[in-house]
Design a protein around this nucleic acid. Structure first.
Lengths: 109, 109
DNA sequence: CTGACGCATCAACGAATCTTGATTATGGAG
DNA sequence: CTCCATAATCAAGATTCGTTGATGCGTCAG
């Protein structure tokens, strides 16, 4: 059933999103990016972390849609993606909200 | 330094919170709990999952503060904890908000 | 008391995740 | 072209996580 597939993809995306937020290094990166665009070298200095480590975490954040990147010469600049953050907040709001009439009718989920 | 310790504990708590949200089974549990209190047996039926598996995930959710439990006879009832969900939403809002004047003054983090 | 039920906990295993150091790819400087 | 800087990717190892089946603990019924 198509809706099943969609539900699956929806869940996968949500899982990836919260997984990306569930790591200290990645949260530190996001905190830094609140102050604006940063290149990887800025972050290695600020967080005192190896370059390959940051590349790894930046990829996780990017795959989750939490950041976007841009190349300028030999530098890669990373920026927060507020859209995805908003979606994350929405997902949480949904969890703490009462089920709709339609949801109550169909039982659940 | 005390503030360092506090910052560490704060980060740990945040990491645990989002980690708890980054699993399909746990998200399904939370979805069910939106409809109200449920015992473990309800959830094993609804999610078609082994009992020990649900116990494991419920513990993760409880340790993160996302649910609370209550014993009634031989049944354990689990309930959503909206406070923690609100905190999660706040954490995300902070990430997507512009840094305060004080934050900009002290550089960052 | 005894047996059954509901659930938590444990041990063991495979899978996923994170870190580190080395290698590769890309772009700019000389 | 050659060399250096920046960053992505890879391989290997350590750690954490999730699942399963077995065991233990508390509670109720008979």
């Amino acid at each position: 059933m198509a809706t099943r597939t969609h539900a699956r993809a929806y869940t996968d995306r949500t899982v990836r999103l919260f997984h990306a937020l569930s790591d200290g290094t990645r949260l530190s990166i996001l905190q830094r990016l609140r102050f604006g665009e940063r290149c990887v070298c800025d972050l290695t200095d600020a967080l005192d972390a190896a370059q390959s480590r940051l590349s790894f975490h930046l990829k996780v954040l990017k795959d989750a849609g939490l950041v976007t990147d841009r190349r300028d010469g030999r530098w890669m600049y990373y920026t927060l993606n507020p859209e995805t953050l908003d979606q994350a907040a929405e997902l949480i709001d949904t969890l703490s909200s009462a089920p709709s009439a339609a949801e109550r009718k169909t039982g659940c989920c």
